[in-house]
């Protein structure tokens, strides 16, 4: 455990030194401010044209927050892949791994440490950004998103799945090949998820099956859907009035599957890293 923490801290320090952390935080803050300003003006118009506080007004606010969260979920996945894609393969290519792996530490500790460091950074970043826009919305309009905390954690979980996938790829593939693979997998889950949605609205079973299959292959999109489902009022979901409306929400079984999937990826990454020559 001590070794895992050393590598987690090293990963965190590297992000801080290489300015990735500051750049991401600065841009994240800019994103929240931009969102807040934009929301403020839309809010003014919406209130002016509405007849008092009602369910449609709340649905409008909800749509705005969901749009913001959708961007954050995408950014989270991008960051997860970009920060981790070369964390193993890059160190093998540059030979920096040799002085580390010949210390009296298990390779699993190196891998888990890197995963933990990146996972903590990603989760904090997503919670910070998502929390920022949820709070900005609340401060301006008084609208509080339902299930905000579990929703944010699900968005972070989606990024962690992609992080684990990209770390696994990095134990065998070159940095570029791994990046291509990770984004292809994300794309597959993304398209599969939308096919499933459309299929559910049009009652096309084949389309739904394709979606389920893609969710089993890469469950990242299914987790986003789960987050979107719990953070929207039930009426919005049922009526399908928003692009984020969930015709079929993934079940708890899917959540458990995704958790097992992620743990399996990490275990496989550890096995693969342990058995390769450095």
């Amino acid at each position: 455990m001590r070794d895992i923490l050393i590598f987690a801290e090293l990963t965190f320090r590297e992000a801080r030194r290489s300015k990735i952390l500051w750049t991401a935080l600065g841009l994240g803050l800019a994103f929240i401010i931009l969102y807040g300003v934009g929301f403020y003006f839309i809010y003014r118009d919406m209130v002016a044209y509405s007849h008092g506080r009602d369910i449609t007004l709340d649905a409008g606010f909800n749509f705005m927050v969901m749009a913001g969260l959708y961007v954050i979920s995408f950014l989270g996945v991008m960051l997860a892949v970009l920060t981790s894609v070369g964390t193993i393969s890059g160190e093998i290519t540059s030979h920096t791994i040799q002085a580390l792996a010949t210390k009296p530490v298990r390779r699993t500790a190196i891998l888990l440490g890197k995963w933990l460091g990146l996972a903590l950074m990603l989760t904090s970043y997503i919670v910070l950004l998502a929390g920022g826009i949820i709070l900005a919305t609340w401060a301006i309009s008084g609208y509080l998103l339902p299930n905000a905390l579990p929703g944010m954690l699900l968005i972070a979980f989606q990024a962690l799945i992609m992080l684990s996938l990209s770390i696994l790829g990095g134990t065998r593939l070159s940095t570029v090949a791994n990046g291509v693979l990770a984004f292809m997998c994300y794309g597959l889950a993304f398209v599969g998820g939308w096919i499933e949605q459309v299929g559910a609205f049009t009652h096309n079973e084949t389309a739904v099956d394709i979606g389920i299959l893609s969710s089993l292959l890469v469950p990242s999109e299914a987790i986003w859907k789960m987050a979107a489902n719990i953070m929207q009022p039930p009426a919005v979901n049922v009526l399908g009035v928003s692009p984020f409306s969930m015709a079929v929400a993934p079940s708890t079984a899917m959540l458990i599957y995704a958790l097992v999937y992620m743990i399996a990826l990490i275990a496989l990454a550890s096995y693969s890293f342990n058995h390769r020559d450095l």
Binding site: E14, H95, T96, Q98, A99
Partner: peptide, 9 residues
């Protein structure tokens, strides 16, 4: 151990 490729962070 001093590796042949002495590359470090």
């Amino acid at each position: 151990f001093l590796p042949e490729h002495f590359r470090f962070h």
